[in-house]
Nucleic acid binder design. Structure first.
Lengths: 241, 241
DNA sequence: ACTTATTGTAATAATTTGTTACAATAATAA
DNA sequence: TTATTATTGTAACAAATTATTACAATAAGT
């Protein structure tokens, strides 16, 4: 099965996939007190890009997005949110892709489907950093986490896509309950607060935060966590419902 | 110019337009104490649909959406918001379109581009009802307003698209300042409150609403309005910024 | 003038959010 | 063992926001 599909991803006409339509995924993880995103790299030419993919002729768009994110993270059942469609005429600069295709020895002329105009549906994903195994694909031989403050130059409009994804995440933060998807199974209140503060890019007051979060009734106290620090041990919480 | 474009919209291959990608617009207006949407009707077979269109090869997606909405309303500079992409495999039932094409004598077989799978980008528009001149298109010979409570059966997943559009509008209502786009130049506080109540589908308290809206500092008092009613005359306001 | 309906806003109550304060630890050092 | 230190959990209070009640100010009609 995968053989055939991968074939069609590199054939010149792109048969088997919806033409002109792509998915770009901004996969957020939290680690080391930072928000990070998963980026693909074509190492030879140091070209960076968001994880992306195409939609099969018989595949739901949202299913395709889940597939793309699963293929890069190794995870199933990921929290995914459509946030914007990037459809400007000028967004598809074919040059970086062209130089990659030349470098990997993929035969192509200017009519190769990967070099045409693409409209791209932007999704953001929230994942438990500790569970992810970054996986390269056919075209990009690197796949790794980059802190939001240290994003390298990206292909096409991918920097804008990340910016819009972050803005959407910030807006969704209290309307939905998205932040929990970034946490491991068990976490302290302080860790959760740090995630909120990092996403919103501002400090929150500890007592107010704790009161607000606990009042949602979504957290269950698991046990105390001995951190080894010279102070009272915090509770561990886990998400219920 | 328009001649050529209209030609390409009905030719069997759909040349000149991005393949497989469409725009559906939920155009909201407010009139007679009701939220209404603009619907297209093919009168012979009583088939109803949302106003929609396609994206030209050299056209920005958002520009295309503005064009689509302008063509149906006669208005320029419309408030438009992308809200969701509808991309399920099963959403494109070709039968209604087929029967219309037969009825209008458009030659086609099953490979005609209008009968293929489409992914559709959903936009909602907010317009001043009193300024709109509903305009039919090549395929649908009717274009008229329908109150949200009296929407007829619609093609494909267009009922779902309206539902999602309304949910997005509700969510955007206080984060952005969208409601003003539904108002005429000058309006009373009561009229504005009715719009809010209709969108949110719940009653609001008059003093709280007035205080909140005025505290935004976006409204200017114009003059009193003599309604002819046996009571104090309300102020008229207009939107400043 | 008196009545009625509705407006604009003041006054008060309830709720939510922001801030300060402090007792309860877990480790380390005296 | 007993301070000392850092951090946690939460109470207590303050400020701000939002909800509710109340009422004077009209614009007609009676």
């Amino acid at each position: 099965m995968t053989q055939e599909k991968k074939e069609s991803e590199t054939n010149p006409a792109g048969s088997g996939y919806l033409p002109g339509l792509a998915i770009d995924a901004v996969i957020f993880g939290f680690h080391d007190h930072q928000l990070k995103v998963l980026l693909m790299e074509y190492k030879r030419s140091k070209i960076f890009a968001l994880p992306g993919g195409f939609i099969r002729n018989d595949e739901d768009l949202n299913k395709a997005a889940h597939r793309v994110v699963s293929e890069r993270t190794g995870l199933q059942n990921i929290y995914l949110e459509q946030f914007y469609v990037f459809g400007d005429f000028g967004r598809s600069d074919p040059r970086p892709m062209k130089s990659i295709m030349t470098a990997i020895g993929l035969k192509h002329d200017d009519t190769h489907w990967l070099l045409q105009r693409f409209v791209s549906v932007g999704y953001y994903a929230l994942v438990d950093f500790t569970k992810v195994t970054p996986m390269p694909d056919k075209i990009f031989d690197g796949c790794a986490w980059y802190p939001l403050g240290e994003i390298p130059d990206l292909m096409q409009d991918h920097a804008l896509i990340i910016k819009k994804a972050l803005e959407s995440l910030q807006a969704d933060l209290d309307r939905k309950l998205v932040a929990f998807n970034l946490m491991p199974e068990e976490f302290t209140m302080n860790e959760l607060q740090t995630v909120y503060e990092t996403i919103l890019d501002r400090k929150l007051l500890r007592p107010a935060f704790q009161r607000k979060i606990l009042s949602l009734g979504l957290l269950e106290r698991v046990a105390k966590k001995w951190t080894g620090g010279a102070h009272k041990a915090p509770y561990l919480y886990k998400f219920i419902s």
